[in-house]
Design a protein around this nucleic acid. Structure first.
Lengths: 342, 342
DNA sequence: CTGAAAGCGCTTACAG
DNA sequence: CTGAAAGCGCTTACAG
């Protein structure tokens, strides 16, 4: 009875989903499923040339695709990575996301995407889902502090991109020296004799924004720039928020320039200037940060700091590979570039 | 001997990966793993309130997360969807992608992203990977014809967004009536007395681009507009290609407007105008298509057709749910809107 | 080099 | 309502 049940379960019926399994391939090739597995996963054991060929032919004929769920369950590895993006609207981030996808797919890995919306609870929901999917590693494109992060970083390789977290000092980070870049940008403004300036920086809770602000203030003080009281505003990292903050600042007719915490904020400022009939760059110069790849096409009026997004993605993937190979966490700062368009 | 091996294998040691399994939860709650499964998956069988509570407490205490690979293997369902994006640079597409992610994550599903780069071979590589991951469904944000598509559409629910394929007439589609929209846009140009016009359309191989071109030509003819010989150019759907095509067209000093196959092309035209010192919109009007959400902020000079991207994503997800519930494939056309900014 | 067997973590008939 | 058992599709020691 046990035997008969056994026989039935061995019966290599096509599964009802119509999918071809390793068993079907083994049967057609006239070998065991172990040999099929070994033949298809070069490196996991040796097979004779003859077996190799028989298996390849059978797999091809049946249009076989290995089931990743089976593989993942057994080998405890999914070849899948996750990205948590903090801001759906920022297409500088989107550009990094797609670059990550491109690089990972070249490595036969796939990318799951999530959005945290800069919100701790949302980020934790993403982390929960990620934990259940046994991903091989997680990229954060601007992480926020959240309770779930602790468990995640303990169990999975994590790389922070563009923003690090004070609370997670030993997590890998790939970015630029934001403070130095902001200082350099402000100095270049001072050399152009932009003396009456305003600053719309990102949230103090963002380490990156805080560093950029420090750099700006530092260099502004050294250059003896004029920053009116109330001319330093904190914005969210969005176009809307930049637009909102710009309103009152533009009342000052002597303003030479506004320095923004990122390009998104700068876009908001620009729109407000358009509405007020303020000519950019003739009457007012705008400085951003990141250099969204669209700028070259759509924002000839924008001065900014180019954060090398392609290299950022490449370096992040390399560092992820280091981590999955049990290498050490690292903080990697890439070179930035001042872009003066107007 | 068999027994002792059995015992060892049953030993609920924490797996070396440190992950907590359903077995650990069952042990702590003092119930079987079947009960744990039933308690955690409301709807898959009834459990007593007492069991429910014991399991919930144990799961919570152990910080348990079900392993999706195990679940997927057994239940043949991954709660994972895939998106194949044709163009990494087009952030109108990116906006749709992120909106899909947002909607799916609300349904406890995750999204795998891929890029085809408008290339059949690349798309087929994506499809191969997708097939091995047993996804619940696949969204195409601008599909191209490729051999792998046949197998995929036979086995998996597929929704085409923004572009359908002549070769796959019975695959679900969500988009707008591109021909009618293009006609309406051209008519609105004619009403503004834009008589000398040029057209830079997308590839004829794209059904969407072909429809838009048909609509434009149709309305231009009806309105008696002037289209110089050589003033109809085919571009790829990129800013670079729009830039390239615009060069020769701008030699005609009498040109009133250029109608483009999408916004990306229009951005390229704009940049060329800037370089040539041609004032937009004063000397030349530019018409695009799609209405990238950034336009509102960065392209006040652009007239375009708003394709409702949020609704597109929402409708695509709804149609996907219909398909996974064995509902019928449908072609859904959403309302568009003419946007006249300049 | 090869096959038989165990088992990854789940869900779901099946019996009770 | 509950538990024991089977099995999803793989990979990988283990023996030969």
């Amino acid at each position: 009875m046990g035997a008969s049940r056994d026989d039935k379960s061995r019966n290599p019926r096509q599964s009802e989903s119509g999918a071809v399994s390793i068993r079907d391939v083994a049967k057609r090739a006239g070998v065991s499923i172990a040999s099929v597995s070994r033949a298809l996963n070069s490196g996991s054991g040796s097979v004779s040339k003859a077996t190799q060929e028989k298996v390849a032919a059978a797999a091809q004929a049946l249009n076989y695709r290995p089931n990743q769920a089976g593989r993942a369950l057994r080998s405890q590895s999914t070849n899948t990575f996750a990205l948590i993006n903090s801001n759906i609207q920022n297409n500088f981030y989107a550009a990094i996301a797609w670059e990550l996808e491109r690089l990972l797919s070249a490595e036969k890995s796939a990318l799951l995407v999530y959005t945290s919306n800069e919100d701790a609870e949302t980020q934790d929901r993403c982390i929960e889902d990620i934990r259940s999917r046994q991903v091989s590693g997680v990229f954060f494109l601007c992480a926020v502090d959240s309770p779930g992060l602790t468990t995640l970083t303990k169990n999975d390789p994590v790389v922070f991109i563009n923003r690090r977290l004070q609370s997670c000092p030993e997590i890998s980070f790939v970015g630029i020296d934001d403070e130095a870049a902001a200082r350099a940008q402000m100095r270049s403004g001072a050399r152009r004799d932009l003396r009456n300036i305003a600053i719309i920086h990102g949230p103090e809770s963002s380490d990156t924004s805080a560093r950029r602000l420090r750099g700006m203030l530092d260099a502004a003080r050294d250059a003896g720039a004029n920053i009116a009281p109330n001319a330093i505003k904190e914005a969210r990292l969005s176009m809307e928020s930049g637009y909102d903050c710009a309103g009152p600042l533009l009342d000052d007719k002597n303003l030479d320039a506004i320095f923004c915490g990122n390009d998104q904020i700068a876009y908001g400022v620009y729109r407000r200037c358009l509405e007020r009939g303020i000519a950019v760059p003739d009457q007012l110069r705008i400085y951003g940060f990141d250099d969204n790849p669209m700028n070259e096409w759509l924002a000839p009026w924008l001065n900014t700091v180019r954060v090398p997004h392609v290299e950022l993605a490449r370096t992040a993937v390399e560092q992820m590979q280091t981590l999955t190979g049990n290498g050490a966490a690292r903080e990697i700062l890439l070179p930035y570039e001042l872009i003066q368009r107007a």
